[in-house]
């Protein structure tokens, strides 16, 4: 079998994988809200920074 069949199958399979990933992400609502996640990802840091500080002060007080 010629190599061209392998190449075409591989390239087509790859394209189809991307195609189905896109359809699936639309279905799951990934594109319904394109703004909030961009804000949300910034919060994680702040909450993490805050809570360790709190725990440190608390332990200090206890000891």
């Amino acid at each position: 079998m010629s190599v061209i069949y392998v190449l075409i199958t591989v390239s087509l399979a790859l394209a189809l994988v991307f195609f189905f990933i896109f359809i699936k992400s639309v279905k799951s609502g990934q594109f319904d809200d394109t703004y909030t996640p961009s804000v949300r990802m910034l919060f994680d840091d702040e909450v993490k920074n805050k809570s360790p500080k709190k725990s440190i002060t608390k332990t200090k007080l206890n000891s």
Binding site: D32, D33, T34, Y35, T36, V39, R40, L42, F43
Partner: peptide, 26 residues
């Protein structure tokens, strides 16, 4: 952004809430 933050941390104010998610544009 404060609104989003407080509303997504609602579970800390009411233990019945397991999670909350804001859709800002809507």
């Amino acid at each position: 952004s404060s609104c989003i933050w407080i509303l997504e941390n609602l579970q800390r104010l009411n233990s019945d809430i397991s999670s909350s998610q804001v859709n800002f544009p809507k």
